[in-house]
Design a protein around this nucleic acid. Sequence first.
DNA 1: AGTTTTATAACATGTTTATGTGATACATAC
DNA 2: GTATGTATCACATAAACATGTTATAAAACT
Lengths: 211, 211
Amino acid sequence: MASLVGIVEDNKKIRDLIQRYLDMQDELSCPVAVDSVEEMLEYLEEHEKPRVILMDIQLPGMSGIKGIGLIKEKYPEIDIIMLTVYHDSHKIFNALRAGASGYLLKHTSLPEIKESIVNLVDGGAPMSPQIARKVINHFQDNAPKKNPDSDLTPREHDIVNGLVDGLSYKMIADRYDISIDTVRAHIRNIYKKLHVNSKAEVIAKSLKGEI
Amino acid sequence: MASLVGIVEDNKKIRDLIQRYLDMQDELSCPVAVDSVEEMLEYLEEHEKPRVILMDIQLPGMSGIKGIGLIKEKYPEIDIIMLTVYHDSHKIFNALRAGASGYLLKHTSLPEIKESIVNLVDGGAPMSPQIARKVINHFQDNAPKKNPDSDLTPREHDIVNGLVDGLSYKMIADRYDISIDTVRAHIRNIYKKLHVNSKAEVIAKSLKGEI
DNA sequence: AGTTTTATAACATGTTTATGTGATACATAC
DNA sequence: GTATGTATCACATAAACATGTTATAAAACT
């Protein structure tokens, strides 16, 4: 069954080009291409909902980012891909925070756009590589700092991994073929290094990336 | 000029396959493929630095995530792409935080891997669509894959938060001004809903966003 | 050569957790 | 109007955990 796709794009040439191309694909059908969020909202009231909407940011009337919020609020099951020339971090993050599931730059080729929609329907999140780079950089800037004093030995890391996997001391002892008292000994040292005094805190620190 | 690529991957078959394929490409050259971070670090001491390193996470000796940190610390100009079977959110985020510039799942085809490397050299950030989806979800901070059967009540969420904060039953009882037996009762119900039977597992699930 | 670190192990003891069973009260749902 | 779910509390017991003390041996460091 073909997935329905909608387009919100104010440049008629681009809009028609994309619509015609997508509509030609076996897997897709593109019954609606409008030039404003307002028109799309009207359309959604009265017709079968598309599975995916391609949306520009710069639009007459309401901005695409504001549009994401409104559409997702009423129809959370619709996935929205931004298709825009903007690659500044602020617009990207606002769009993603508003609920966009993908972000493509406008120079993306028609086959790639098609590929992205199929991807999205399959549970992926299409992003132009330059966009992904910015998103990743954002992560690295906010990286939590590790406590240098908390350098664990390889064996201690093994034990921590066991704890994170939800194992008991006995199960950890079995996994690494050592005695339970040795596990205890390692745990004692780990607690000292991490300044904690329970399994729970070790697991939390580990999963937060602080080890 | 061909970009140099290094590989750290403990499965010899996969390693050789990728190396041979990449080395065949005009744009790339793959002079080094080893099975541990330790070996790669040795290699880097004595040879021309690769532009990009493909790295597994699960490795003999030091984990790939720890390896990212060490390599980026000494050679920040090298870009690292994770190539792994893990699609666990925490592994992804820890890898990205540690300094990875891309994250591909192992089922990625050889041509796609090549494409990703070229992409990275051009300033992009290759990511498998499923990975991108998780990264985006993180932005929207909506839970990735809640188990519908595991719907906790508000009070149960309080208790889980207490556990995640590393509190004992007694401390949780104090925090919410209820009896320790009530805490026990809630914990029992939580375990039942989540199909687990230890604090550790609840904390792990919670921090992995599975609650 | 001597010290520190790592990995191993045993024994003891008190605390915390996991689990069973049972009960009361209130609100919502069917 | 009686199930169902939430929130509360109690008592009991076995298992798991936290912590103290002590010790051996190999590896790494000074």
